[in-house]
Write a protein that binds this DNA or RNA. Sequence first.
RNA 1: GCGCCUGUAGCUCAGGGGAUAGAGCAACGGUUUCCUAAACCGUAGGUCGCAGGUUCGAUUCCUGCCAGGCGUACCA
Length: 585
Amino acid sequence: MLTELKERFRKALTGLVDEPAELLDLIRGSQDPKFGDYQANLAMPLGKRLRRPPREVAAEIIKRLEIDDLCAPPEIAGPGFINLRINDQWLARRLSAAVAEPRLDVAPVASRRTFVIDYSAPNVAKPMHVGHIRSTVIGDALCRVLRFLGHRAISDNHIGDWGTQFGMILYGYKHFLDVEAYRRNPVQELARLYRHVRRLMDEEDNNPNVTTTDSVQAAVLAETARLHAGDPENRRLWEQFLPHCEDEIQRVYSRLGVTFDHTLGESFYEERLAPVVDDLLRRGIARESDGAICIFLEGHKTPMIVRKRDGAFLYGTTDLATIQYRLETWRPDAILYVVDHRQSLHFQQLFAAARLLGYKNIELQHVSFGTVLGDDGRPFKTRSGDTVGLEGLLDEAVRRALEIVSANDDAKPNGPELSTEQRRQIAETVGIAAIKYADLSQNRTSDYIFSYDKMLAMTGNTATYMQYAYARVRSIFAKGGVDIEQLRASGSPIVLNSAAERALAIEILRFSEALDMTVADYRPNQLTSYLFDLANRFSTFFEQCPVLRADTDELRQSRLLLCDLTARTIQKGLELLGIRVVEKM
RNA sequence: GCGCCUGUAGCUCAGGGGAUAGAGCAACGGUUUCCUAAACCGUAGGUCGCAGGUUCGAUUCCUGCCAGGCGUACCA
């Protein structure tokens, strides 16, 4: 709809201005229905440029505008706003097209780009906790939306499988292994060892009497160094641990419904690190300083270190090697890093270094997000035992969902409709959705206050609300015995006689605007916000407009079509956020 | 010290050069012989951190200040 409007305005502006793109961005949805559906705010700045009164400019634009088939005659208001009201006939035609069309009237992008999306990336030696959700869920959603819009999106989970965490479990394995427990459940025992060593190291931090030479920390670093140096035993153990660690994270991913095209962790780049540093040195991009190999960057006081004095490489080195590999392998137009904002300095340096290496014509983007904070507003600490594990959080969400599902089902006027198994499945879907939505609905740049109640909320602006709207539509179809295929093929006209129907219709047709906004700044909360508006419009419609008992057959058909479009849009929108719907709830 | 981010209703947060700043939760009032009340309708609640500046117009952009967070050479 917006695209169409812009096109019309573009034509009207030719001859008046040379570069209309910026002005066309000033066409947007109206804030208030009384100003119509869309408003064009371009007459004011244009009036300034042409040194003419804005209202006069607005009048001229309207005169040039060929828009009769699309809108009611545009109105000029205030200092020069052009208010636009879409024709009901045009809306109805557009909706009918969407009925017959699997993409819901969303056109694929004209120029397809290739994205590599780097997200989730947990350290696999330790259990995932609540802090891992954001990257995972946001990255997955961006991937899905980009693909739906017609882009090529390659997801790559850059897991931490080569760092100090492995030194920790190597050390733990050699000193504190419970052989029987390891045999029974290796994943659990490795997690225990990790936590145990973590605790020992934390205790050392608070104990001034420990000397650096005999400390656990030093021993852990030594184990890590031996692994990197190719020590056969550590290597063998690492190879033995890794599959267990991957099973562990895989279990969480399958429950979350998240998948990756590739899982190329740090270890994958091991052999590329030395050549990267050599190359940097040879080309004079990096130089030795204080024993370390450094890249000094303009505007940065501290250099990016690519090789430590002791010869070890750092994650900056790995990241450079990774960029190199991705460019060679996929030739992407963009690489997105969905990573905590605390690493923004690292990415600034990394991107600057990449440019020095001559990697141009590629969008390198740190899609950063805020930190998870505790209830007290302090940063949420990930160490020690009292952190919230990711699986525990999922379980709690599902438990709460099950309570609500059951209570609601019990309270149905004609008695319960759901079996125990159905209730359980619905609770799983609704509970996980609640957690994902809590993350996705927030502007990613702000910090996140961790709160069980907020994260697990199932009333208000939540995934549950959308799922509920969807289930109500399905319920209407079930009660009415409607054959959906037949309905869609019927060619019945859509009529928009009431404000509620019209508002719903407009909202349905704005789906593609929401997707464009989501991708523009890589912000899924644009999509959640749209879906909430849509579900809201539907709820109002549901209250005010009887569907099965509509006054006429024509109206009934029309409303059924609106219901179907709403349900499909919600389903698709949620799907793009990685959230599933349920038929009943 | 320097750099990045944040400051909007009691709480949690959207929004963003344009018309009277929005939502959820909490509070208060109303709605169920009617397709799911996980809902709907309404009331109340804000000096958009403070001060300047640019502009026809600033909560939005710029500068300074205040407050908080994060980061800041060999962790990731």
